Amino acid sequence: MPEQLYDLRNKRVWVAGQSGMVGSAILRRLGREGCHLLRSSHAEVDLTSWEQTEAWMAAARPQAVFMAAAKVGGIHANDSYPADFLHQNLMIEANVVEAARRHGVEKLLFLGSSCIYPRLAPQPIPEDALLTGPLEPTNQWYAIAKIAGVMLCQAYRRQHGCDFISAMPTNLYGPGDNFDPLGSHVIPALMLKADRARREGAAFMEVWGSGRPRREFLHVDDLADAALRLMTHYSDESTINIGAGEDLSIRALAELVADVVGFEGELRFDASKPDGTPRKLLDIGRIRALGWSPTIPLAEGLAQTYEWFLQNRPETREHPRRSRAPAVALPLSAAFAQR
């Protein structure tokens, strides 16, 4: 295993975006590292504002930063708010990276997204596929902003000697995921639909797309472990992939989600709706060489995520199952999106 390059013990550590799914998972993981965790919220600091970001960084003086803050969403959200996705993400990453340089942050990890890779990249996708072809149009605004974040870290390393690194996680899921019907990604969107269909006794549920695209999914707690491994054992300007190492079709995913939720009806795929990228599987050979591998099987992670959803949705009490009824139209089809 490569030697440890950076020790987090007794360091002042800030997770930007710590209220989100990824940030909260990293906070949980850092709780075992003997470091001093800096707490922040959007009410305290708006990271799209340079003045607020710089002032907070000057006062808090973090030594290590996990950059997990971002405006995220699925196909519907990206298509509806392209300017917001591009502008807000550019501002967040530019403000945090520059403030980190000005205030002497020792190490920064920028978390991007696998959607930065070309739509038709080779599979599994190696890190050097970046900027070798056109992006997937359904999330190009977010992807361009994340590519800019990768380049920022590379530029600050070259010009200022900053130990800033970047990583590209695959599709993430887990406790704390976004279950907003109009902004969620594929797993929470499918869970919402399957849960409603089960409770209403629907004969079928509709899924956007053909079901043929293949996707890779990583539990957010595995991502948190990977982020810690990179922060302590990696220092290079090249971005590095974080993935599960295997993928499955959207059809197989929908069947697995239905099984976890307990929906026994038919799945109907609407091929008139967009599929997004045909396949997206990351090559994770480089991070495996650093001693990290995913540990949470998809079925186990989905069951854990659904349990979290049941405990945290507005209606926290389970509804009794109804007898089988005629098929119902589920208005959540707009939420189905996968990067």
Rank of each mutant, 00 (worst) to 15 (best):
residue 276 G to D: 07
residue 179 F to V: 03
residue 52 Q to V: 01
residue 282 L to S: 12
residue 188 P to G: 07
residue 199 R to K: 12
residue 41 S to H: 09
residue 271 A to H: 11
residue 252 A to S: 15
residue 24 S to W: 04
residue 295 T to H: 14
residue 221 D to F: 06
residue 45 V to H: 02
residue 94 A to V: 01
residue 87 H to D: 15
residue 137 P to L: 14
residue 332 L to T: 07
residue 240 I to V: 13
residue 81 Y to K: 09
residue 204 F to A: 12
residue 166 S to T: 11
residue 205 M to D: 07
residue 226 A to D: 07
residue 307 E to K: 07
residue 15 V to F: 03
residue 235 S to D: 13
residue 244 A to G: 02
residue 57 M to Q: 02
residue 165 I to C: 13
residue 122 P to M: 12
residue 282 L to A: 12
residue 38 L to A: 03
residue 158 R to N: 11
residue 93 E to L: 05
residue 5 L to K: 15
residue 4 Q to W: 00
residue 57 M to E: 00
residue 13 V to C: 08
residue 36 H to S: 12
residue 296 I to Q: 08
residue 185 H to S: 14
residue 133 G to E: 01
residue 214 R to Y: 03
residue 258 A to T: 00
residue 79 D to C: 05
residue 315 E to P: 00
residue 288 R to S: 13
residue 5 L to W: 00
residue 124 P to C: 11
residue 229 R to Q: 12
residue 15 V to H: 02
residue 28 R to E: 13
residue 329 A to Q: 14
residue 51 E to L: 12
residue 238 S to P: 00
residue 167 A to F: 11
residue 119 R to P: 00
residue 334 A to L: 13
residue 279 R to H: 14
residue 293 S to G: 06
residue 323 S to N: 01
residue 336 F to E: 14
residue 235 S to L: 10
residue 330 L to E: 04
residue 137 P to E: 12
residue 224 A to S: 06
residue 305 T to G: 04
residue 115 C to N: 03
residue 209 G to V: 07
residue 95 N to I: 03
residue 143 A to Y: 04
residue 326 P to K: 09
residue 291 G to N: 06
residue 187 I to L: 15
residue 112 G to I: 01
residue 262 G to N: 09
residue 144 I to F: 02
residue 77 A to F: 10
residue 68 A to N: 00
residue 280 K to F: 01
residue 256 L to S: 13
residue 321 R to F: 02
residue 73 G to V: 03
residue 208 W to C: 13
residue 296 I to K: 06
residue 38 L to N: 07
residue 28 R to V: 00
residue 191 M to K: 05
residue 124 P to S: 09
residue 118 P to N: 07
residue 126 P to F: 04
residue 135 L to I: 08
residue 167 A to D: 09
residue 21 M to V: 04
residue 1 M to R: 14
residue 169 P to H: 04
residue 148 A to Q: 10
residue 287 I to P: 02
residue 15 V to D: 01
residue 328 V to K: 13
residue 272 S to V: 10
residue 176 G to F: 12
residue 5 L to I: 09
residue 315 E to K: 08
residue 120 L to P: 00
residue 27 L to S: 10
residue 3 E to V: 14
residue 250 I to F: 14
residue 337 A to G: 15
residue 225 D to I: 00
residue 176 G to C: 06
residue 100 A to M: 07
residue 246 E to L: 10
residue 312 N to V: 01
residue 246 E to G: 09
residue 325 A to C: 08
residue 331 P to S: 08
residue 152 L to C: 05
residue 91 M to G: 03
residue 248 L to A: 03
residue 130 L to Q: 06
residue 17 G to S: 08
residue 62 P to T: 05
residue 109 L to W: 02
residue 45 V to P: 02
residue 71 K to P: 00
residue 95 N to V: 02
residue 2 P to G: 01
residue 231 M to V: 11
residue 171 N to M: 12
residue 215 R to W: 09
